[in-house]
Design a protein around this nucleic acid. Sequence first.
DNA 1: CATGAATGAGTTTTCATTCAT
DNA 2: AATGAATGAAAACTCATTCAT
Lengths: 191, 191, 191, 191
Amino acid sequence: MDKRERIVSAAIEVFSEQGIEKTKISDIVKRAGIAQGTFYLYFPSKLSLMPAIAEVMVEKTLEIVQAKVSKSAPFPVRLDQLVDAIFEVSEEYHEMQALIYSGLASTEHLKKWETVYAPFYEWISESLEQAIEDEVIRDSVDPARTAKLVIGLVESAAEQIYLYDANKEDEAAVQKREVKQFLRFALSIHD
Amino acid sequence: MDKRERIVSAAIEVFSEQGIEKTKISDIVKRAGIAQGTFYLYFPSKLSLMPAIAEVMVEKTLEIVQAKVSKSAPFPVRLDQLVDAIFEVSEEYHEMQALIYSGLASTEHLKKWETVYAPFYEWISESLEQAIEDEVIRDSVDPARTAKLVIGLVESAAEQIYLYDANKEDEAAVQKREVKQFLRFALSIHD
Amino acid sequence: MDKRERIVSAAIEVFSEQGIEKTKISDIVKRAGIAQGTFYLYFPSKLSLMPAIAEVMVEKTLEIVQAKVSKSAPFPVRLDQLVDAIFEVSEEYHEMQALIYSGLASTEHLKKWETVYAPFYEWISESLEQAIEDEVIRDSVDPARTAKLVIGLVESAAEQIYLYDANKEDEAAVQKREVKQFLRFALSIHD
Amino acid sequence: MDKRERIVSAAIEVFSEQGIEKTKISDIVKRAGIAQGTFYLYFPSKLSLMPAIAEVMVEKTLEIVQAKVSKSAPFPVRLDQLVDAIFEVSEEYHEMQALIYSGLASTEHLKKWETVYAPFYEWISESLEQAIEDEVIRDSVDPARTAKLVIGLVESAAEQIYLYDANKEDEAAVQKREVKQFLRFALSIHD
DNA sequence: CATGAATGAGTTTTCATTCAT
DNA sequence: AATGAATGAAAACTCATTCAT
């Protein structure tokens, strides 16, 4: 109902469908079912939408990840669940990820992006710290830095599947298995 | 001399400098030193340049990587050199990577992108096969799939530095070290 | 006030003055006193104006014809008045007729053209029916079909004068007389 | 083989298919299988083609008419044959007729057009003169003027069919019959 | 004569932004 | 706050014409 929200989700839809470049403000307002002028009551430009969109995306990502990864499970299981979760998010939102990426890149909103993604990195980082403390992974792991590596690895692996591959279901399963193994070795998980 | 080439490299230059969105065809032709109409003899639109640019970019990447990675060195050294090379490419061309990414994403040229990246994947894949044969890495590694994981991991790690970080030099050094270690474990390198 | 109307009548004016080919959208909008972009709010292209112009033209034709042909006069007089009326319209709008013709021909709007001309055909057809009933013309006349023949004949006769002839005034008078006589015989008018 | 001829017939084809306005010189040369520059060796512009095209058209028309109308038959039969012939020409070349019409209208080649059509008018005119002399038609007929009326009438009748009607075959037969009768009365033919 | 890539002036077309309602 | 028609500056695109080969 809220106009601002309507604009943001309309933008997510049309950006995903036709790319940022090709999307006109008029496409967004048409989808949102509001008047052309109303857009400018909430956002000064097309690109100024990106932080708002990014926020929504990270929110959704965190929701899915936190729902999928069980707090009480042992770390190796949690890691597998994380991979599954990120693949799931990628499947649903892979276009958006590229969009946010390039959308933010072409603005000066990069700082914001880091901020927006921060809770996700934080959450992984804490898991890694705990795992080091519990001696389930090698103690040479730098939690903060590795959190980003893990997310980068898994996201790029997922994108490779959902952007390019034809037989996505099967491919995704194999790719997930490979990533999980890769990670297990990378972190030196001792079961 | 060749007009098409002139257009593509002019486009790489101006896209890097001002982003896709802000770049006008007239900027590209001015830089290329050709007439406006000539552009349309070779490309129907700004976005249709992206596959050609991607091709050039991958070419340059491969060149740098192959120059940096010594054929005769032992695998662990080669892996470190690969990381260094990809970080170097990212440093120089990180804007372009985001651009290609979003440029391709907003067109229907994704299929082409895979093709274009293929020689790079191939090259890494062969290195991994050799390493398995030489028993320097675990034999459970799937060469083709892992090649993509490795590239994805290193590229995303590099981007994290060059897109967002302020103190790039220092950060890059630390990040590289971290990635190298991560990879060494992930592939179970036996020195 | 209505912008669409302003565009159509401006187009009729400038098309008449300089031909379709030589007319730029900018000429039309200048004449209409509106902004360039406004044109595209109503028509996607120059040629897409043609059906709208045709409609206006037929309207004007009908107006002139109905003003010139007295309802109460005997049929032979009405026929002569019709000839005069069509010659008058041709004199004023002969460029437009060729333009509409070729303008419609070069689009896919031919179907529309028939629809647009329909009220004119109808009107003549009814007159002929009445004349048959009143036994002032031969009863072998097929009203609908003959309506079109009559209009076709008179229009082509008028065009011959106004398109090609130098001494139009005199020529028109002679040509009109000839057409009237031709028609009187063709319809077997019994005075 | 002759390049000039190749250009003219290619132009007839593409003009018919897409209209004069939408046709580019490049379309014509492509169809003609010659180089872009070669066009300018023969014609200075697109519209300067029109007289050459008109000439070809009238040539073809006269050929068909003279083949169809038997020299020795009585006048009423010859008149019927003329109607058939013009309908036949219209069926095959109706697009061209509109094109020549508007194409010449938009140039200063109108004088030429008259000249080009002259032999056709002449031919009909002579037939009418003979018919008057033979007392098969009313002697109030002005041969030259009526020749044009007859052609105008029959051509417009034919166009109505071939431009607009769906069921062309049947419609054409009825229309022809109507025109023949119309003409017979108009000229007061005494069998 | 013939070619066809290159040209760039001339047009069309777009679309973010405004503003009277 | 909301609207959406109108704007016009800016950009894309076209295509007749040229000219070196």
